[in-house]
Design a binder for these strands. Structure first.
Lengths: 116, 116
DNA sequence: GCAATACTTAAGTACATGCTTAACAGTCAG
DNA sequence: CTGACTGTTAAGCATGTACTTAAGTATTGC
């Protein structure tokens, strides 16, 4: 791998941790400060900040510091990218299933005609 | 974290690697043997098997050995679970945006009435 | 100014991940 | 039976991840 991380790598990696997902869920309900994000999590503040950095690197979250408080907000476009990837795979798979169904149906018809 | 991995952790973790995603993409086009999955990847067979184990642990892929060849197939229900999680967050966020829009519109009306 | 607030930085630790090579094991064709 | 084919197991290594504590730095309220 050696640090050639694609956007999807960073995105899914960011979502692959329950603490980070709970931060995302919190942010879906509106912006929050670092302390607010940390409150429900059983870990030190620096740990939360590190998770936040992962989320920012993935593009899922953006933050801005005003005075002494850093306010974090979710970045929905990034969420959509991950959703799209998964959705497309699933569509492709379902398309294949349709083809398979058609193939089997055709086979069934042939069998009917050939071996009555 | 300490090994208490939820289904979503395993799922997103599995998708957070380009090699594994390419294996998933390959499997969306139909079942494949381990060697077939390995062919386009620039790594040893054991490495591919390890990725396969991650995919199986996540529920994204299932495999069965017949004779000396192990055939792998995608498990679409698992894909749908990941898609659903993301989709729900996005819906929640969009709902919030709607509320915000309504709020701002209302504020605008009030301002119009109050400061003409 | 001074102390509390809200982070930030640095350093260290334990464990997980993504590979590798080497050696092994079951299956099938001739 | 033998040898090629397809995978499996084991061991090891370099790097990455998820924390920790301790010590710092701006901001802000009094």
């Amino acid at each position: 791998m050696l640090n050639s991380q694609s956007a999807l790598d960073l995105m899914f990696q960011a979502l692959a941790d329950a603490s980070r997902r709970s931060m995302v869920e919190r942010l879906c309900r509106g912006p929050a400060s670092v302390s607010e994000l940390a409150a429900p999590l059983a870990m030190s503040l620096p740990a939360v900040v590190q998770h936040l950095q992962v989320l920012e690197a993935s593009g899922l979250v953006r933050s801005e510091k005003v005075g002494r408080v850093r306010t974090c907000a979710i970045q929905p476009a990034a969420l959509r990218a991950a959703e799209t990837w998964i959705h497309e795979r699933r569509l492709f798979w379902e398309h294949r299933l349709d083809q398979l169904g058609a193939f089997l149906a055709e086979q069934g018809d042939e069998d009917k005609g050939r071996t009555p």
